[in-house]
Design a binder for these strands. Sequence first.
DNA 1: GCAAGGTC
Length: 931
Amino acid sequence: MHLIIAEKNISANRIAQILAGNEKVRAVKEGGVSTYSFDTKTVVGLKGHVVEVDFEPGYTNWRSKVHTPRTLIDAGTVKKPTEKKIVNLIQKLAKKADLVTIATDYDTEGELIGKEAYELVRAVNPAVRINRARFSAITPAEIRSAFDNLTDLDFALAAAGEVRQMVDLMWGASLTRFISLAARRGGRNILSVGRVQSPTLAMIVNREREIENFVPQTYWMLSLMTEKEEQPVEARHTAGRFTDHEAALAAEAGTKEPLVVTDVKEGQKNDRAPAPFDTTTFIVAASRLGLSAANAMRLAEDLYMNGYISYPRTDNTVYPKSLDLNAILDTLRGGVFDADIAWVRQHRRPVPTRGKKESTDHPPIHPTGAATREALGQDRWKVYELIVRRFLATLSPDATWATVRCTFDASGEPYAATGSRLLSAGWRRVYPYSEAKEKILPVITAGERLPIRSVNLEEKQTQPPARYSQSRLIQVMEEHGLGTKSTRHEVIGKLISRRYVEGNPLRPTLVGRAVTDALDNHAATITEPEMTRTLEEHMQLIKQRERSREDVVTESRGMLHRVFDKLEAHEEEIGEEIMEQTAEEHTVGPCPVCGHDLRIRHIGISQFIGCTGYPECRFNISLPGSTWGRAIRLDETCEEHGLSHVRLIRKGSRPWTIGCPLCSHIESNIEALRMMPSMIDDLMQRLHAHHIYTVSEIAGMQPVDLSGAVGVSIGEAGQLIREAEDALEVLRRRSELRKFVRKIIPPRRGRSHAKITRSLLEQGIGDIRALSQANPAALKKAGIGDAGATELLEAARGLCNERALREAGVPAVSLKKYQAGGVASPDDLCYLPIPYLSIKTGINPETVHKHVDLVCSHLGRPTPAKITKAVLERGRKELLAIPGIGEATVQRLYLAGIYDAATLREADPEKVSSITGIAEARLHDYIGHLK
DNA sequence: GCAAGGTC
């Protein structure tokens, strides 16, 4: 069997189709992985890298005293399978193979992915021949020629890729751990560092600094309005920007009629058709349509997977010779583009346009299949249409413009006006994404005299550089060689998810700045694009076999060690700098009580806003737990309290904007305050004026302090505090009820717990006790179904009974036994006969009596007489001695309080029968037997 | 918990 391994599933399929020719390809899924077989060949696709380098075991604990971040530099590495299904299948097939061909992409990573496959094969089949097919596009010609000229894997090329992996891992992981530990950040708040992300972040930070430090310069623009045959014409002073106000004023004053046309120059301008799309230019064009980089890529990948466009991750801007452009035009026929295609065919430029970059792995992005707007939906169609039109534009002639430049002399001051007119639209006919703006001048001839209608001197300011948009940043990253076509947009996503940058255009956060500063000051290597450039040079040398992998890695290790020398010497300082700079990120504004900063605090899953004056100042505002979303500070501030607004953000759900935390705090506590009988508006205002907002604050105060704060007598203050305590208790029970209902009736879509508890409250059900006695109709009204209502009532009763018994002093172990015996309510204990309770629970009758006594006295009821175990045992024997009475009957008699011959003799058979269900006649028999 | 690079 000949095993062929491709880089991805879709390539595997296409390679199989091409190689099979007329033969039918059998597509079979094995263990969830597709294989394509024909003849004796089987083609399998990888998923890019199917293994991952990581440190050998022992380095997982970040805080280890032995394996410090620095030790990661020299730590051994292992390759771990990340796609187990594929790895297993490859090895299974490799055992049976007598030839293996690696057919991954033709670039460094492709060679490395190929080597990973090679090693997987070798591990299970040391003898099999393994060769390599190299092709720059998956077209029949390329593939056939590649398989006719099979070569060997290029281990030097793969080694270059391995160096990148090693260097990225050791620099990234060690620095990430070091910085995170120094700044005491863990979990979701780690501070990541990397060869690509850190220089990218630094560019955004530097741009922000430029903007902040920008000093605007004033300048003046001078223009005049003239007209020819009633058509207004604007001419600008040829000096352009005047930086000297005096000079501008003088030129303005000197601008006088006669205005003489000194020269008219006509010309023609070519407006080149755009080059084919690579990933970056595609993202830039898509961003003009309002799509973010990540979105544009997601849509393009979708189109690619469904066969509408070619592979969207490419650096190539030159169509390979093997690409049949006419065939593509044919494919696109029969839809909305027909007219445009016909036009392109008719006016086709001799050679398609080409961009600066040419690479071998994939062709530029182009359409591969016809589609309709209906089939794709709005967004995908937008992207598809863009790609089709771009393709058509690359085959279309240039646009041409007629240009004209008129120069004027206004009594010695020189002016000029320019005009342009589209002569032939060319590619712009089929690619209407950038507007062709014409500026038509009337016909003006040299020597003519024109009137001056007005002279305008405009004062302007120079502008700071613009922040990076995502697409602009991707362009700049590419210019600096940062990242690849596949990863650039992901890197930006990473900076956003680490909360280093935010907004569009991108702004750095305080954390982003702090980390960049710290790295800039102590580990500058990692914040500069230079590192990538050097790495690439070294990779190049490895490819040319001029340096070895080990040599380059050793050099990189040495550099990283030197970086760590500096870092470790300043660890504390670095940590403090970051913490100090980022503290502001959590600061929401001044504490209303003491004026110190209020800060958002996260402790475990709980979060709140506390005062930095703690413990002297105990002011705090509670926030919903972080399961609702992590609290972050917004830029807006509350005019009344001067505090930043707060928002809860949670992945995958809409953010919950709380707004001013103090406004929200006050608002949400008013209802609770009103639960205090003495609370009147005036009192509430006085409390608020003293920054007392919650009942729990009042409940926790001393009467003297409260009296002083709101100007009531000590006695009244005491009363208020008691009222607050009561309100607090009611609130506590409500919250308990809410949690209880939530536990029994779990939340699900379309069932609002807030609604349920509100409705219960309106019906006077405010705690679990009230719930246990509630009418099922009330639960139904609150939106709880029949089954749920029964379950809820039973659970509530059970819980109340349990609490009552526990309060009375029944020990927990016994409580369980009463529950198991089904006799666990206070009434059961007070009213059921002790022998019955004993036999149902297996508890000694004397102990039962003790419990019954506890419960009865707790409830103020009389305790029944004690029965000892001996008495009970004797009585049982007496009863069993009576013919017809067995264990079951004894138990039933217990229920009626009959436990021996004497109690049976005195019993009223009619009553006993009604309680126990034993026929009266039989009871008469038993009693008769005794007599 | 860490990088960057493949791919889905």
